[in-house]
């Protein structure tokens, strides 16, 4: 609502981005490593949010494509001896190519089934990765030193380089998703978020839009996978396809931050990293706490922290083009909401 508030928020955002860009000159190696991880997580959260928040696809198998990216990168560099600079885009492409048949199979499942379908697919990809010759089997293997050295001869250089790459990935993922949401396709996606039936009846081709989104996320997830391989300097089925790190945490981040906005996933990721600094020692209790919080959020504030901000009159810092104003109607939740044709929703 209030312009000063919006300007203030945007100023903070701009300062944040600038500080990130100047990161290598501002932060020590330790912080840079944490931030590298942060950008990977932001990328993953943006992708999960695109699917859950706009395309109505709940993925519990996002880790599958992350792992594929990591393994593809390892294959192109360590096994085929390609330059890392060729291998990075090729890894993204490989992930996309693998996403196509995966999509073709699991999209035979609808809605709730699809969620478990993505999980099965990710499990299959992980098990196959453990069988590939040259990748170290079930226990995985390290990236060869010569491959790693291509990113910088000294450790400090490499830390800067990995930082820059993951920052670049997060920025591109963000800008590309923003552009997608502001495009004509995004109009349909936003309509789908606000009322799926309305989107369907107003001629948006739901299935094609869903497929597009699913495939859209694949190369970004693959690139995030490359970054995880670089961060850990190894690939392994359990680590590269880790459901906790690449999907479960991400779901918590997006749910708590706010599904269906661009700000939510970022807000959630910041919160997640802060919480983790304080609560990491509590181990399982930390995840239990996140589980409880996220159930509470779903029940009482379904649009998360950012949704709450919106209701308090906070404007979208990054309007995704077609977002409804705070006064826009939610879905009808009367006793017969299920039978009410969407057209009845006023608006």
């Amino acid at each position: 609502m209030s312009t000063p508030m919006l300007l203030g928020a945007r100023a903070i955002l701009a300062a944040g981005v600038l500080a990130c860009l100047a990161g290598p000159w501002l932060f020590d190696a330790n912080s840079l490593t944490v931030l590298t991880e942060f950008f990977i997580v932001v990328t993953l959260a943006l992708m999960w949010n695109l699917l859950a928040g706009y395309a109505d696809i709940i993925s519990v198998g996002q880790q599958g494509f992350v792992g594929v990216g990591a393994y593809a990168f390892f294959g192109f560099t360590a096994l085929l001896h390609m330059s890392v600079w060729a291998a990075v885009p090729l890894a993204a492409l490989t992930t996309l190519l693998i996403a196509v048949p995966v999509m073709a199979v699991i999209f035979r499942l609808r809605t709730a089934y699809l969620a478990v379908g993505t999980w099965v697919a990710a499990d299959v990809l992980m098990l196959i990765a453990g069988k590939l010759p040259g990748f170290g089997g079930g226990s995985g293997t390290s990236l060869p030193i010569p491959v790693v050295k291509q990113f910088g001869a000294r450790l400090g250089d490499r830390i800067d380089m990995f930082y820059a790459l993951s920052l670049g990935l997060a920025l591109i993922a963000f800008l590309a998703t923003w552009a997608l949401l502001r495009s004509r396709i995004g109009l349909g996606l936003t309509a789908m978020r606000d009322n799926e039936e309305a989107a369907g009846s107003s001629g948006v081709d739901l299935v094609r839009t869903r497929i597009l989104c699913f495939l859209w996320t694949a190369p970004f997830l693959g690139l995030a996978g490359v970054m995880t391989a670089l961060e850990k300097l190894r690939v392994a089925p359990t680590a590269s396809f880790n459901i906790t790190d690449w999907t479960i945490d991400i779901i918590f981040i997006v749910v708590i931050g706010g599904i269906g906005s661009l700000e939510g996933p970022i807000l959630g990721a910041i919160l997640f990293f802060l919480l983790r600094q304080w609560l990491a020692d509590f181990g399982a209790w930390y995840l239990i706490l996140l589980g409880v919080i996220s159930i509470g959020v779903i029940l009482f504030e379904p649009k998360g922290l950012w949704g709450a901000c919106r209701r308090w009159g906070f404007p979208d810092i990054l309007p995704a083009g077609h977002a409804p104003g705070p006064g826009a109607p939610e879905r009808v939740a009367g006793p017969d909401a299920q039978e009410a044709p969407a057209a009845r929703t006023v608006g």
Partner: peptide
Amino acid sequence: QRTVGKGILPILLVTFGLSIIIQNGLLE
């Protein structure tokens, strides 16, 4: 029951949260 009639997202996410709580609770 609180999620009934609100689409698939809330119910999936609530049971997802429950799953994580049970797993980690048993682990503790």
